[in-house]
Design a binder for these strands. Structure first.
Lengths: 206, 206
DNA sequence: CGCCATCCGTTACAGTTTTCACAATCGCTC
DNA sequence: GAGCGATTGTGAAAACTGTAACGGATGGCG
């Protein structure tokens, strides 16, 4: 039986994993769906249901073993390995992304950074040397990249995404304020703080 | 009849507004739900349904007037006014946020930036002078802030959010990798690129 | 001026997601 | 080793969300 797991469920799993990691750091050995739910503002039933798509990880009367549930979630999500990342667009935002220390400890290794501006070429950012965008295709052919992070102006985003996808990249994290199109087999997530704020203003207005 | 509008709908409206703004810039006068849907990867029916919560904005046989629909959406979302913002946490990330030029043109005015590190106090970032965190309460009492942007370490996030909320802030944009709790009348949006990547790896793994 | 192609707004329907509620199980205590 | 309080996993119900389909406008064209 091949059960298609809802994407909403997949999207919640990383937050569960993050909360479990915090509990583990604090030396907690066991957690109930009730307690985890309170920490994450999610109902206990939701957590149990979500986990039940993947197996039976808890013990009645006790709860879940923090370490082992965390390990299983990491396995399910594919967080137990290293992923290769490249960044396209090394303006102010792209630089901040490359220098951000939060990706590497989670297994996301930034291999290269590209920009179309020739003045940036060869400049070192983080511990990378910025490459010209023209080299993107050749680079991808030689060193497969799993995830592309895009931080270019909105008007160039679609083209960059297309080039990443045709180079074999199967996941894109887009920081540009636009909605690029990708084939169904490619994942994309958009990060746009302005959109986030613009939905909150609706409620502020009330 | 007071109809409660689903939050999913509200969350889509800013992307509609963004697409309309682009069309307007390109001089397009009219757009159909079909065309808008193709640009945004949304079904035309979804767009029509979403808009129908708020009124009748289109013309049969023609479509929507780009300018006037955009104006109505901006009004609905409260984007037709200025909102006051403050930033808490002026580390690497917080600095990038304060210096990011994307908020101001959309009506989000950053009034102040706070940090607990006394070494940063008085330092000027963007055109602001960093204030000590101790002054946050007094500042909020004097100059009401609508939206607080939080970019502090995860372990301090809840405390900062609590202080913002008790100072009257009713919307929070959280960049820390944690899930803060807020009262029901306060909106919160979390931005975490690592979580976004961690849900994509599930599909990469397949 | 009447016909035609287009496309909105809406209602009914289908599908998805969340919540509920309870039997089953676990570990502890006596 | 029986009894008890806690907590899981799950099937069924409820709530929510998205899609389809169609009547009714609308504007353009001959």
């Amino acid at each position: 039986m091949v059960l298609e797991i809802p994407e909403v469920v997949i999207n919640r799993l990383p937050t569960y994993a993050r909360a479990l990691a915090t509990l583990a750091e604090n030396g907690e050995a066991v957690v109930s769906s009730q307690a985890l739910g309170e920490a994450l503002d999610v109902t206990p039933a939701q957590i149990r249901k979500d986990l039940s798509y993947f197996g039976r990880f808890g013990k009645q009367g006790r709860g879940y073993n923090v370490q082992s549930l965390l390990a299983r979630l990491r396995e399910i999500l594919g967080l137990d390995r290293q992923w290769h990342v490249c960044v396209v667009g090394v303006g102010r935002l792209g630089q901040a992304i490359v220098e951000y220390g939060g990706f590497e400890p989670q297994g996301f290794k930034i291999l290269a950074a590209f920009d179309s501006n020739p003045e940036l070429e060869g400049r070192s950012i983080g511990n990378l040397s910025v490459q010209n965008l023209d080299e993107l295709g050749a680079f991808l052919a030689e060193r497969p990249v799993d995830i592309g992070i895009v931080a270019v102006p909105a008007e160039n985003t679609q083209e960059i995404v297309d080039r990443l996808v045709s180079g074999g990249v199967r996941a894109v994290l887009n920081y540009a304020p636009t909605t690029p199109h990708v084939p169904a087999e490619v994942s994309i997530r958009n990060i746009d703080p302005v959109l986030a704020m613009q939905s909150m203003t609706y409620y502020l207005k009330l």
